[in-house]
Design a protein around this nucleic acid. Structure first.
Lengths: 148, 148
DNA sequence: ATTAAATGTACGGCAAGCCTAACACTTTGT
DNA sequence: ACAAAGTGTTAGGCTTGCCGTACATTTAAT
């Protein structure tokens, strides 16, 4: 009974709900609507859908919350996002906005195994020094030479 | 008049057509159907759609080919795929099948700029040696230690 | 407490993409 | 050349996910 896939769109809803919970006390549908830039009615639909899948607790006009399974799923997605963002910013040196944008899309399609390797790669890079050269510094230099 | 975005689905069709052209003389719709694992009728629809966008030359029961714009677009997608595959296999050390799978999905969502950086990162890595350590070798060692 | 504003929902619609089944055209084998 | 098999097309249907509008409910202001 593990890991039923949900659509990228539903992942976004879950992730957003989770983020709002982290920041505020209650989750209002309109807040989800604003963050995802979709209509209020789309949020209602999505919530019903997520409720069917037992990922959110939902009832008409009622408080929105994540079920344990929903929270687990949301955390996973958020974690993927964070790893990707970290890679893009701290390794590739992409600017923050673009890194966010890319992470938002990549998080829905990257496999578990690639994620795992990416995590280790990041860890490895942060500590890798060799004969007083910092690897990432070297890459930045290399990159900015190629820029011109 | 540059770079109108098309859907991930249409990108797959374009890419597949391009691949078939590289391998065989003529493109048959059924071949596209087989490779993309969709029904024959879905191919017809997609071809009409791509023809509307002036990316393929299409007429009922007629030979399928790419327009110059279509070929350009297909090349771009294939190139992205190749870069991602290269990164996954040669840098992260992901196995070939999984790298193909991931590349197929990532190619539709990665931005131009991230791609550009990835290309340079790969280039940089291939040549980066330092005090007789090969960087990628070091990562492989690091990775396999963590594996256990 | 009452009303105005804000928020949530239901309903009907639309587009993308996929499907199956039936039919049209082409190719192939004899 | 002609039937059978293969391929391409059309028509109709389904699902996901979005929208706008109108209505229901809740919240906030007075």
């Amino acid at each position: 009974m593990r890991k039923k896939k949900i659509s990228a769109s539903l992942e976004d809803y879950l992730e957003t709900i989770y983020e709002i919970i982290e920041e505020k006390q209650g989750v209002k549908a309109i807040e989800i609507s604003r963050r995802l830039k979709v209509g209020r009615s789309s949020v209602t639909e999505a919530l019903k859908n997520l409720a069917e899948k037992k990922l959110v607790n939902y009832g008409r006009y009622d408080v929105i919350s994540l079920t344990p399974a929903g929270e687990r799923a949301a955390r996973e997605i958020q974690f993927k996002h964070q790893v990707l963002y970290d890679f893009l910013v701290n390794i590739l040196g992409v600017n923050e906005d673009e890194a966010q944008n890319n992470a938002c899309r990549l998080e829905h399609v990257i496999s578990e195994n690639v994620l795992k390797r990416l995590i280790l790669f990041i860890e490895f890079n942060k500590n890798f020094h060799c004969a007083d050269h910092n690897y990432l510094e070297e890459f930045k230099k290399f990159y900015s030479e190629k820029e011109e």
